[in-house]
């Protein structure tokens, strides 16, 4: 039942049109940050207000909506965004990646490959990849327009000089279609290879910073690196304790009072689906403690 006090998906139609124009411009210039007039949303910044506004602008009554937060559908943040759109748009929701037409995400790309019928909406805290070394907005804008991206490699250089390898493991910078350098939001770099050549549309919304950017389907996305320190999509060198997956991104969780630890899929839907298919991880062989 839609809450009658609000327009469909909370935002008024004029605002949605303004956001859609920004999205279309973003799709036309992959990786380019398009300014938009971010609206106050009934949730604090840091709760994905940029992603929420993008989702609000693209959702239709026929959509099925999924929200993931660090791979999980059941965190407070994910639950509150999902219920927000259940309430204001009356859309169907799901936790199954394949059943969703619009997926809003914070910090992950689903393990299951997405299709041309799907849209992935990222919540972005800091859209500007150059900010780390150049705080002046006027200057970073100029650097983007003139393709002056040496500074991005200074950041990676600093990483190697300090840690012996590129230690940046989240928000790892990429170059889009050999033109714009883009911050992929704080997804683990393990997910970076999925950004490129993806069948689904990818939209990035930064609420506080009032920026939208986008990757149309099948866009070339390359992670920056050095010849002698090539990019690696690393993850913990373990298998999922629950489903035995060897190819998924793993979280390390504490499972009992004795400090017992378990590696398991960060994508809970992926893990659940694998277990439903009968896959079992080593945790089930070791103990029955893990449910």
């Amino acid at each position: 039942m839609t809450d009658q006090a609000y327009n469909f998906a909370y935002l008024d139609e004029q605002t949605k049109r303004m956001i859609r124009r920004a999205i279309l411009k973003g799709l036309a210039i992959p990786g380019y940050q398009v300014p938009f007039a971010s609206r106050e949303m009934p949730m604090p910044y840091g709760w994905g207000t940029g992603g929420v506004q993008v989702s609000a602008a693209i959702l239709t009554p026929d959509d099925t909506f999924k929200v993931i937060d660090q791979g999980a559908d059941d965190t407070t943040n994910a639950v509150s965004i999902r219920s927000f759109f259940e309430r204001t748009a009356g859309v169907a929701t799901t936790t199954a990646t394949s059943a969703a037409s619009v997926i809003q995400t914070r910090h992950r790309i689903p393990e299951e490959p997405l299709t041309e019928d799907q849209i992935l909406v990222y919540q972005v805290p800091i859209p500007e990849p150059l900010r780390f070394l150049e705080p002046r907005e006027s200057e970073t804008r100029k650097m983007h327009s003139l393709e002056e991206y040496g500074l991005m490699h200074v950041k990676l250089y600093e990483d190697i000089s300090r840690h012996g390898h590129i230690a940046t493991s989240y928000a790892y910078p990429v170059k889009v279609e050999e033109r714009y350098v883009m911050d992929p939001s704080p997804i683990p770099k393990f997910d970076n290879p999925k950004l490129g050549d993806m069948a689904a549309i990818q939209l990035f919304g930064a609420g506080r910073e009032q920026r939208i950017y986008a990757l149309p389907p099948y866009t070339q996305v390359v992670s920056l690196d050095f010849e002698d320190h090539p990019f690696e999509a690393t993850k913990a060198d373990q298998v999922c304790g629950l489903c035995g997956a060897t190819d998924s991104y793993l979280d390390e969780v504490i499972v009992d009072d004795a400090g017992g630890r378990l590696f398991c899929c960060s994508d809970t839907d992926y893990c659940t689906a694998r277990r439903a298919q009968g896959h079992q991880g080593p945790a089930f062989l070791d103990s029955e403690a893990v449910a």
Binding site: G150, V154, Y157, F226, E227, H229
Partner: peptide, 23 residues
């Protein structure tokens, strides 16, 4: 760049003109 190491400061111009070999 006061927040960047001495090596990064000297290396910036090299990287700006396309050098991509850390060593």
């Amino acid at each position: 760049r006061m927040g960047v190491s001495a090596g990064g400061n000297v290396g910036e111009r090299l990287m700006a003109v396309g050098e991509r070999h850390y060593g």
